[in-house]
Design a protein around this nucleic acid. Structure first.
Length: 433
RNA sequence: GGGCUCGUAGUGAAGAGGCCUAUCACGCCUCCCUGUCACGGAGGAGAUCGCCGGUUCGAAUCCGGUCGGGCCCGCCA
């Protein structure tokens, strides 16, 4: 029976069998140490028998092994236990030298990211690299837990859609059995439709953006958390997103304290209530503190996003901040306007970057059709027929958010590029691996 | 789409007109080493300095082009 590496210490005195990958060899003459990696981590194996050591001659890191040995308590060993009198069996011999080293931290310098992604298949065997994706997995687990506990239903909506129904961002076009289709840039329309059935829904899935953006925060395939909830006002929407974010971040920083520290993640500074600033306030504060005048600008500049997060961290004790009251130039046809002429939407910023956009939707059928016409969108377009049906037959006031999972993971860990938080990132130039 | 940058062994770096027959670290190969854990020691192999052209007595180094990265802006998550 197979014993996992982190379980060796519970079998002291027994002969156990471990299966995994050769992770590191250290030959000291009459004594050889090897590390074997499995899904739980590493175990040290001590080899004194020359014949056993000889089995590893020419075998490179990555060789798949079965090791049978006696579990021994040993304070000098990593983890406090190791295997002695080991018998090796090479299950999959590997004689090719790996192109990168996996037992040392991989370079995450911007200039070297290309190498990191080219050799992703092997790089992910690096324990340090794995931590990023263990944390990502846990972030998704906590999001699902929180939303499920709060009565949300998880849904999946089509990623092949008819035309560019939403307008706005560039889409990837594809040939769908002779019809023109595109990859969904957001589940926007579908999740609104689903509010008519389940009241509260969320989806975690890919969204495809064909924009020619080459920055540290853009990829063309992004993992989005989409939330939509009904019978609420804008404040309640923001509260939900705030509580979700607070809850997830707090739990991750508790559960992964050691991993985050070893990845040089910053200390988490966050408050239960996130500070809120209007776009206008940010422009004023920023212009006052910097040698710049952004008061005429509509949107926040990337530098303002970074600055306001720093400001909120110092003044409000929170690295997460809401920016509200976007000018009407930002209005999308499905969003609700506020009485003061601004759009009822807010951006959630965390550690200097936009993590989520959180608007109220226009739920009144006639008003929605009117807003579509104002934006030059034809409500009769077949792409909108079923969407509008949901409104025609009754949709309550609702709102939600599009929440960037990749950016959240990136910033939670304190990485410098969103692509580092993605297993196999897709950008302007990268389609493999 | 606009601007700015960078390409040197498998990997990460140094070299910025002649000191280069290109340096270092890790990895790899051979040997030594009984408590290593970024093991240590001795030796060795491995690079037409991204590619093409130009300037020059002489180019990894300067110039032009080209290909491939990166960063910023715009746009967004």
């Amino acid at each position: 029976m197979r014993t996992l590496t982190d379980d060796i210490k519970n079998h002291v005195g027994d002969v156990v069998s471990v299966e995994g990958w050769l992770h590191k060899k250290r030959l000291l003459g009459g004594l050889t140490f090897i590390n074997v990696r499995d899904r739980r981590g590493l175990v040290q194996v001590v080899l004194e028998d020359k014949d056993e050591v000889e089995k590893l001659r020419g075998m490179q890191v990555g060789t798949v092994l079965k090791v049978e040995g006696k579990a021994v308590e040993e304070p000098r060993a990593p983890g406090g236990a190791e295997l002695h009198e080991a018998k090796l069996e090479v299950l999959v011999p590997v004689t090719d030298e790996p192109p990168i080293e996996i037992d040392k931290p991989l370079s995450h310098k911007p200039d070297n990211l290309d190498t990191l992604f080219d050799y992703r298949v092997l790089g992910l065997r690096n324990l340090q690299e794995q931590k990023v994706f263990k944390i990502r997995s846990a972030v998704l687990r906590e999001i699902r837990r929180y939303l499920t506990e709060n009565d949300f239903t998880e849904i999946q909506t089509p990623k092949i859609v008819a035309g560019a129904a939403e307008g706005g961002a560039e889409v990837f076009k594809l040939d769908y059995f002779g019809k023109e289709a595109s990859l969904a840039q957001s589940p926007q329309l579908y999740k609104q439709i689903m509010v008519g059935a389940f009241e509260r829904v969320f989806e975690i899935g890919p969204a495809f953006r064909a924009e020619l953006s080459a920055t540290t925060r853009h990829v063309s395939e992004v993992t989005m958390l989409d939330i939509e909830m009904s019978f609420v006002d804008h404040d309640q929407v923001l509260e939900t997103i705030q509580n979700l974010t607070y809850d997830v971040l707090s739990k991750i920083y508790e559960e992964f304290a050691a991993e985050l520290k070893s990845l040089n993640a910053p200390e988490l500074k966050i408050t239960e209530k996130f500070p809120r600033y209007t776009v206008e306030q940010v422009h004023e504060l920023y212009s006052k503190a910097n040698k710049a005048d952004t008061t005429g600008e509509k949107d926040l500049t990337p530098d303002e996003e970074r600055w306001i997060c720093d400001y909120a961290k110092k003044n409000d004790g929170s690295e997460a901040v809401f920016v509200t009251s976007f000018p009407k130039e930002f209005h999308k046809f499905y969003q609700k306007m506020a009485d003061d002429g601004t759009v009822q939407t807010a951006d959630l910023l965390f550690r200097g970057i936009e993590i989520a956009t959180c608007p109220m939707r226009e739920h009144r059928y006639e008003k929605l059709v009117e807003q579509m016409k104002e934006k030059g969108i034809d409500p009769k377009h077949p792409g909108f027929k079923y969407y509008l049906q949901a409104f025609q037959y009754g949709l309550p006031p609702h709102g939600g958010c599009g929440y960037g999972i990749d950016r959240l993971v990136e910033k939670t860990i304190g990485l410098g590029n969103v692509k580092e938080a993605i297993l196999f990132p897709r950008d302007l130039g990268r389609l493999t691996p």
